[in-house]
Write a protein that binds this DNA or RNA. Structure first.
Lengths: 343, 343
DNA sequence: AAACTGTTTTTTCACGATAAAAGACATTAA
DNA sequence: TTAATGTCTTTTATCGTGAAAAAACAGTTT
């Protein structure tokens, strides 16, 4: 437990140390919300690794039982669920145990349809890095978090209830999003989800997407992307029709649409950069629910115009439609930034 | 030890598996050159952490003894050498032990000038991640390494003589360079230092640098960057005059020059991307020594023209000079790519 | 009181160990 | 003889641990 006059509550506003010095510094340390407790640790010692891959694949495997009277071969199941045969055999063993299937070598006959309580609980199927990411982002967006604040690996690990190694690896992966920075042999520094960050992010995004869109429009008639675009267009039209009830499904469609366009760049750096955008927008959507319906309705319409422009192959129109959409996306993001200190 | 008909020698050319399958796959595993043996391990067990920070700071600290008759306070020394007071005290303790200084509280009198054998050996001052990076890049550039090849954390750790955690962390950090990619719960895949990679890299570089150069030229008269640019110009002129003997110093100057320009973008993603370029060029320079002198002579001249254009603040001239230099940089990089399979 | 030195606590970095998951090899059925 | 199953080995993911380094606290000196 950290000492200090108000540990656990909103930390004091204290600016970053110039470079190295003994000034005291507040930390990114916010009490866990009451709703969520620490991860249960294994009874004895060293739980090493959770079997979430197995549990997740098992749950997905259960859904196969609804459809068929007998399951395919082990390698085929492995390919289907994206796991190794080892995991498939563990799954089959349990399905046999719980009376879902009769398993004898090649024959895997379905005995009954799965019940809700056959499934493993959702939260046990999460990857450790997903758990850490969620936990970290909750703190980041929870307020009372100022740029320059320190991030403490050990403290974070303890609060989330995981080992330090996993937290370190997460922070290293996360650092490419440009929100944190490492001081060698020392702590991480939070750069903050500031207006400056949003502007820098959107600057690159616009550069990359304008280029990708132009590349997309120049793709030959027989490229498979045009079929993908048609499918996405249909989904957009459907969503537009039912926007009143399904507006919260836009976020996922948005990502698929933009990723399709970025892929036309055939540049790994552009494609990879969309991970940064996707991450930010993912949490931004969760965070800022103000006028969500209206915003998404506008965005769907912009996407449809954008799609039409792409199909016209007119570079001028593509550029205009792309610019228009990016401009309103930037505006949406900027208005959602919690105002406060300037960068 | 890996089995297979030719383990340890140049591995067979085998393409990457489609997604998941039991096809055998060759690995990134090349016998260590005779010249370099594995890192010595500590006698007992668990060496935990090497004290390279101390050793490096100590060596740098020795150089201070040449200049003064007495050392400043501990905090001041810490700021000077970029380490904590704890490390400074360990350094001072040793300096006292070896008779270099007399140390009593605030007084730290220099007793003698350091001898060559006072210094710790260079190789003991390297960071673990530097050691891993060098080792990894040596393999990558050693030839016989094809795209699609697997990278095995455990094997790499054993060959370099370090723990798996450090290798994992290195690979995660390294992955942002776009040369390797992770398969979840499984191995890393080498994407390879191919022509496609070089083209994608230079595409982004050109986009970013043209933008940064324009931003640079638009900077106000009183910005401190103009002084920095003047200093760099002088260094360029000096190097140009003595290019015959000092051509190998260009690489370092090149990086400083381009970083100065990129910083004018005020965009962390652009600034950070220069890390990718710097890394690639660093190893590229080490690898490809063909016509090094001529190449660098040309580059210095291009830099000088580029600098002149920046100082003119004429955006047209800046754009032209920048384009010209980037074009020849790209050409140099492309010709040095080991030809082979196409991407 | 400000800045330093002396001492103690905390955090980072790196390792070996271990269960989960992947992968390889051996055997068997179609 | 191909493709599955059965078995065994290797690798990955994660933890706890301990030394190096940083940071905090406490006592001194100017």
């Amino acid at each position: 437990m950290r000492r200090g006059p108000d540990a656990g509550t909103r930390p004091n506003f204290r600016r970053a140390v110039p470079l190295r010095g003994s000034l005291r510094q507040e930390h990114l340390h916010i009490a866990l919300q009451a709703g969520r407790r620490k991860r249960r640790r294994a009874t004895g010692q060293g739980m090493s690794k959770s079997n979430n891959v197995y549990k997740d694949a098992y749950n997905r495997g259960l859904r196969l039982l609804d459809e068929t009277k007998s399951l395919p071969s082990e390698p085929e199941l492995g390919a289907l669920l994206g796991v190794s045969r080892t995991t498939i055999r563990t799954i089959l063993a349990r399905m046999e145990e719980t009376g879902l299937i009769a398993w004898n070598k090649r024959s895997k006959t379905v005995l009954r349809v799965p019940r809700p309580d056959d499934f493993f609980p959702e939260e046990e199927t999460d990857t450790l890095s997903q758990i850490i990411e969620r936990s970290f982002m909750r703190r980041l967006l929870a307020g009372g978090v100022e740029p320059g604040m320190q991030i403490n690996e050990l403290e974070l690990a303890r609060e989330i209830g995981v080992g330090t190694t996993s937290v370190r690896e997460f922070l290293i992966r996360f650092s490419r999003f440009g929100l944190i920075e490492k001081r060698r042999n020392s702590h991480w520094v939070l750069k903050g989800f500031t207006r400056a960050f949003a502007l820098e992010l959107t600057e690159i995004r616009e550069m990359f997407e304008l280029r990708s869109a132009a590349a997309f429009a120049a793709l030959p008639e027989d490229s498979p992307v045009w079929a993908d675009l048609d499918l996405l267009e249909d989904e957009h039209r459907l969503l537009a029709r039912e926007i009143a009830t399904r507006f919260n499904e836009f976020s996922e469609l948005d990502e698929r649409f933009h990723r399709l366009i970025h892929r036309a760049s055939h540049n790994r750096f552009i494609v990879d950069f969309y991970d940064v955008i996707a991450m930010i927008f993912h949490y931004h959507y969760q965070w800022n629910k103000a006028q969500e319906r209206e915003r998404n309705e506008v965005a769907v319409a912009e996407h449809l115009a954008y799609i039409a422009a792409l199909k016209s192959r007119d570079l001028g129109k593509v550029d205009a439609a792309c610019r228009k959409h990016l401009k309103s996306a930037r505006h949406t993001l900027l208005t959602s930034i919690p105002e406060g200190q300037q960068p």
